[in-house]
Design a protein around this nucleic acid. Structure first.
Lengths: 156, 156
DNA sequence: TCCTTATCAAGAATTATTCCAATTAAGGGA
DNA sequence: TCCCTTAATTGGAATAATTCTTGATAAGGA
């Protein structure tokens, strides 16, 4: 369920009455909530389409943008790969696994201001911070011996 | 001048003899060294073309990729904007100014270890860390009163 | 219920980047 | 120095993620 409009963050560019609740938006949002695996737009499209066959990819893009603008969804970009989406709104960093291409959310230990963590030059204004790691997720770091194989070659 | 091959980081996928020194690669590298303003591929193309009119955009892309693979250049991505390039190899974060679209390098003089700031689950392997901020650069944070105007509207 | 207006769907368009094939040139060896 | 092998360069075509366009549809307030 998409949170009601009154609870949404407001800004001058947002529609006065909040996000209009359409079946498509609900389905897209629920698809993101159902599996927190950072799907891209096509992934979301396929998941939603299995339940709502008439939905179009353009609509999925529209819904994802609307939800992102409303602050309900985060867009996650890595290099020039297709954007991926995440309904985890808590402050967290991302680990991009170079082996299996997964994204892991890494929660912040204790809320800290950027100025406390980084040695920032004076005079700048920081609105948002984004931290990304590259490496191996837990699964790829310690492959299951029973599976009989080392991590496969990284996706290039 | 591109550093000689012997000084380049080596890895199994790199050509044995290092990076072949072509006029185009030198020109692209020098364009990046000349102005540390994080140009994108088309910016670099235009700068180099003014001096070497025969160069093609495809070659600029090739050179940028070669230099990046050789570890001489860093690729900087922000959302889905065109990739930008940076010859500053010191460890630093980036500030993306939402007003003037500039990128500022922020040296991380006392970077905290990821484990101190992030709640890292056991078993993962971290190879690289990337920190990005969004906000206002020093110029846009404190506009020159003589210029007679507040920061203009952010590029959408 | 009706009306206004935002949203949807399908396909076309856009754009950053990569691919392709023919030509050119780097740089090691004779 | 000249030659030869091999990789790099070019220009144009191709690709792919995303956005745009237009007419049809539906949300939600009156």
């Amino acid at each position: 369920m998409i949170p009601p409009a009154e609870t949404l963050p407001k800004d001058s560019s947002a529609p006065k009455k909040g996000v209009r609740q359409t079946e498509q938006r609900k389905a897209v949002f629920e698809a993101l909530m159902a599996k927190a695996d950072h799907p891209n737009a096509v992934d979301v499209f396929m998941r939603v389409k299995s339940r709502m066959p008439s939905i179009s990819l353009a609509t999925v893009y529209n819904c994802l943008e609307t939800l992102t603008n409303a602050g309900l969804v985060r867009t996650v970009n890595h290099d020039r790969e297709p954007s991926r989406y995440c309904a985890n709104l808590t402050e967290h960093a991302h680990l991009f696994c170079t082996n299996c291409n997964s994204i892991t959310d890494l929660p912040l230990q204790n809320p800290m201001l950027p100025e406390q963590v980084w040695n920032l030059p004076p005079g700048i204004t920081i609105a948002r911070q984004e931290v990304a790691f590259q490496g191996l997720c837990a699964q790829c770091s310690t492959p299951d011996p029973a599976s009989g194989s080392a991590p496969s070659a990284p996706l290039s």
